[in-house]
Amino acid sequence: MSTKQDDHSPWPEGYDRVVLDSVDSTMAEAMRRAPDIQRPTWIMAKTQTAARGRRGRKWVVPEGNLNATLIFRPEATPAEAAKRSFLAANALYQALAIYISADKLSLKWPNDVLLSGGKVAGILLESSGQGPFVDWLSIGIGVNLRHTPEGVEDASFAPISLANAGGEDVSPKDFLSTVADAYATQEAKLLRLGFDRIRDDWMSNAARLGEVITARTGREDVTGIFDSIDRDGNLVLITGTGPRAIPAADVFF
């Protein structure tokens, strides 16, 4: 392992960066700043006092791990905005693959990056708007860089950190540059090549493709063969009663 210094990584053009010592959560901060941002802006905090995951789930953030949120105004309908889940997952996968062997990384629908099968990161998106376009979209990314969170109970995928898995040591600020750069590339790719290309990239790194997995929606568990993701980003499972396209669920395997 080697130790890198901050601020040696390139920062993507057209994006602003705000680094805070402490904040309740970068998602909440992004929502507060949404009316005033001029350009896509990454907000990073060294510590968060009220971090949260999907549906209010606890997200533990020891210092030395990354907490950051990108806030911007894509010209996108809510359904198009939601596809950014895959862009974010691809970007995070590529950023992590710089610091550890990509053989250890895989993706779980829609935006979980797994390291040696464990949860190394979390991505959460929020948007607002009735249409046609969203008013804003925020993409929150938490990455266990140096520390594996303790006291995480009932986690379906055990927490793991980049450091514990044998990855290179990287500071949160440096890692933010890496992931911001990778994300900007994903946006450029979406613009030039369309979502199909984003989807192909995602599928090529997906865990359990062609195998049986379970998607837990608010109402039911759907078990089937993981066939693909469709052009809308839905998870497609081949079940006993035919294919099912699922827009929102937690995936287990």
Partner: peptide, 18 residues
């Protein structure tokens, strides 16, 4: 005001009162 949230692909879309 947010009146509810619709989720797709881990994206929580707030629906504001028009």
């Amino acid at each position: 005001d947010t009146i509810l949230i619709i989720e797709a692909m881990k994206t929580m879309n707030h629906i504001p009162a028009p």
